[in-house]
């Protein structure tokens, strides 16, 4: 159930970033959040890089959820 809750909340937050519902987040999407969150474009870019595990420039819901799980204290397997 915890996993469900995590997925649900992560999806909700993911949608805040992915306003066009593309199914992924780009750095451009992140930087647009600068108007809504108290973070600088540089900080948003750093956040993006730390979440984008494979470094392909696209942040998927899976990567986002994993990062969010870590934030909430759900250790990842590896």
């Amino acid at each position: 159930e915890m996993q469900d809750m995590l997925t649900q909340k992560a999806t909700e937050l993911f949608m805040l970033c992915d306003k066009e519902e593309k199914g992924f987040i780009t750095k451009r999407d992140m930087q647009r959040l600068g108007g809504e969150l108290p973070l600088t474009p540089d900080q948003l870019e750093a956040v993006f890089d730390s979440l984008d595990d494979d470094g392909n420039g696209y942040l998927t819901l899976e990567e986002f959820t994993e990062g969010f799980g870590g934030f909430l204290g759900f250790g990842s397997e590896d």
């Binding site: 937050l13 970033c17 900080q43 750093a46 956040v47 730390s50 990062g67 934030f71």
Partner: peptide, 29 residues
């Protein structure tokens, strides 16, 4: 519109991002 409803989530998002920033220092190439 749903903007107001999302404000709580934005707070969570900001906390989440801040925690990532405190964990990983800014890039230093």
């Amino acid at each position: 519109d749903s903007k107001a409803a999302a404000s709580g989530s934005e707070g969570v998002l900001a906390n989440f991002f801040n925690s990532l920033l405190s964990k990983k220092p800014a890039t230093s190439p």
